[in-house]
Every structure is written in C-alpha cells, then in structure tokens.
Computed example of a mutant assay.
Amino acid sequence: MRRTDWSGVRLHVVTGKGGTGKSTAAAALALALAAEGRQVLLCEVEGRQGIARMFDVDPLPYAERRIATGLAGGARPGTVHALHIDPEAALLEYLALYYKLGRAGRALDRFGVVEFATTIAPGVRDVLLTGKLYEAVQRNARNKGAVQYDAVVLDAPPTGRITQFLNVSDELAGLAKVGPIRSQADTMMTLFRSPRTAVHLVTVLEEMPVQETADGIAQLREAELPVGAVIVNQVRPRDVGPDDLADALAGRLDRAQLGADLEAGGVTPSPELLDGLVAEARDHAERRALEDAQRALVAGFDVPSVELPRLPGGVDLGGLYDLAATLREQGLG
C-alpha cells in the first residue's frame, strides 16, 4: 500500500547508494520537518562529520547541538538539533546506564576494550547506534532537561546495508540470545517495524542507483521494515519540450534558426559555436531520455516519490533550505 501521510512518523531514516546525495536529502528533510515550531534531531552514524560540513559548524561531539532554524512556515519556524553518534561513546553511555560502569567504563576505553567490542561484533555496534535513536524518539517529559523531539531524522548507512543495520534483533541472534542488549534490540524493533518509522531511499535517475533502490525496497519489505518515499535527487530541468528534444536527439535542429536566435541576443554565431550547441543539445536529449526511462521504473515501485532539482551552484546552506521547501511542497515534511 502506498503511504502518503507522514504525520505520524517520528523516525525518518534516509538511505541511498553512495553518490546519490542521501546526506543532503536528510539535512533538507530535517529543515522541512522543523517548520511550524517543531523540534527535529538530525543524526549521523558513519563518522564522516557530514552534518557539520553541510551546516558550516564545528565538528559535532557526542552531544546534541542546535545547528539551524527550521524552514519558515506557519506561525514560527522550529529548530534543528544535530547529533554525531559514535559507537565507542554510545557503548560507554550504555555501560554507565545499564551496568553503572562510569570510571570503569572509561578505563576499558583506555585499554582499547571498547573499540574491540564494537569492531568484533557488528551486531552489537548497530544496537548501540540505533539505541541512541530509539532513546531520542521515545524521550518524554520524565527526561528532565532533555529536548523532546517531534521528529528524528537519520542520515543512515547506504542502501546495501540499511536492512542489516535496522534489523538489529536478527543480527544479534547468534551473539546474544538473552540479556539486556538482546532485550534492548527486541524493544527497538517494535519501533523500527511500526508506522512511526519510515525508511526513505534516495536515488538519482541512473540505472545502477535505481536498481539498488529497487533491491533495497524488496529487502526492507522482506524484513517487515516500513518503506517510506523514494527521493529522486539531482533532477535536471525539464524546460525543453518533447518535440525539441526529439529534434535534438535526431540531429534535426535548425542551425539557421539557432544562429538567428544568437544574433538576436547579441552573440555572433560561428560554425564552431553552432556545432558545440548542437552537440550539447544532443547530449541533453540523450540524458533526458535516460532519466525518463528510469523515472518510469521508479513509478513502478508502488512507493510515493518526490523529486529534488540539481542545484547548478552546488549545495550550500541556502540550497538546503530551497530543497527543504521543495520537499514540503511535495508533501514530505
């Protein structure tokens, strides 16, 4: 069933093949959700400090920091906080909370035991990373002094690993059958498989990313994890009509008309300039044809989709707000 109402979603997981712009999409989604006074937490788990670079702030510690005002809209904008979730710091926090190992936990860290534990058992590592997300989503008034968020956005691992990352209960099956870590994993799965979670997949209109998106949707559904929307990123302008595209693709462009249009704009046409324009027009038409074919495949996924434009000047903070506005216009945010 296609889901188009996101109002009940508290955890938005954003994944995608490398190079598709999933981090950009996650940041734009956080800004879009932080409209109308809402509080949003944007998290990352891959250790790249991508959030800090996108928002031009200092590298994030393992602590929630306010980094931006949400997209303007409604009575007042909300706020975007950010959190860089580090597995070693998460394990120390876990040891302090569940085993009361404060100084002892830090001593283990100095001896390298923490790094060993989070490296040798990837399933445990993912429980620690996702456990912090779970805490932020489930936070309530009893957590005095902590921000209570209306939504949490995760810049997640790539599509090829997202099902394994979220399906922590199955990943722990061979490592921990009982105990607090296993209990925590089982509890988190109730959130990850509920309508309060949506896994959004970012793609571009190219063959490999679209195929990986299709595979990711199938794997998420098999694991009973909730598929959200497909976010089609870096879409080229569609301001050339189909007839002109067909002419460009077939090499039928009227060079005399092109020359006349250039002269009308104050540019003296030369044969080399006209050759270059015709070649560029053909390349654009070929690219548009490829994108249209891949767009038809995305439409066949039976998943809601939104499109984000390619920003010619690259993505800066102003560009993130523009993308956030585009997401809200299309109902995501």
Rank of each mutant, 00 (worst) to 15 (best):
M1Y: 06
M1C: 08
R2I: 14
T20Y: 01
A25Q: 01
A28Y: 07
L29G: 04
R38I: 10
R38F: 06
L41V: 08
E46L: 13
R48H: 09
F55G: 01
D56C: 12
V57C: 15
P59Y: 11
L60S: 07
R65N: 03
R66N: 04
H81A: 10
E93H: 12
Y94K: 05
L95N: 03
L101R: 12
G102M: 05
R103Q: 14
R103H: 13
R103E: 15
G105H: 05
R110Y: 09
A136K: 11
Q138I: 04
R139E: 02
A141K: 12
Q148C: 13
V153I: 06
I162V: 15
E171C: 09
L172W: 07
A173T: 12
A185Q: 04
D186L: 15
D186I: 13
L191M: 09
V199H: 00
V204C: 07
M208N: 04
Q219F: 10
E224N: 12
L225M: 09
A229E: 00
N233L: 08
P237D: 02
D247H: 09
L253M: 12
A260S: 14
A281N: 07
A281Q: 05
R287W: 02
R288K: 11
R295K: 10
P309E: 03
G319R: 04
T326S: 12
L327I: 08
E329Q: 15
G333V: 08
